[in-house]
């Protein structure tokens, strides 16, 4: 990935529904085309962040598990 994220967020310790709530609030703070990177510890984000991206129409660029940390990057599309 060559683009650098505009925002880097820490969702460690947050449980459902807060990762989704926080990412929804954060996406309004960046411009269309910009990226947000976030880390979380809730395994629920593996299913919920892709679902959130599908229903809002934003792009899930990456989502990966590193040890017990879940790291994802989303791109504002509209």
């Amino acid at each position: 990935m060559t683009e650098t994220p505009k925002l880097t967020l820490d969702f460690k310790g947050l449980l459902c529904p807060m990762p989704v709530v926080k990412i929804a609030q954060a996406i309004k703070q960046v411009q269309v085309g910009e990226l947000i990177e976030a880390i979380a510890t809730d395994p629920g984000v593996m299913a919920d962040i892709p679902a959130w991206a599908r229903s809002t129409g934003h792009e899930l660029v990456t989502l990966e598990k590193q040890d017990k940390i879940f790291k994802f990057v989303v791109k504002r599309l509209k």
């Binding site: 459902c16 529904p17 989704v20 709530v21 990412i23 929804a24 609030q25 679902a51 959130w52 229903s55 809002t56 129409g57």
Partner: peptide
């Protein structure tokens, strides 16, 4: 939880 999740999803 349902309400905030739905609102976060743009509903």
């Amino acid at each position: 939880i349902i309400a905030s999740g739905a609102a976060a999803a743009g509903m």
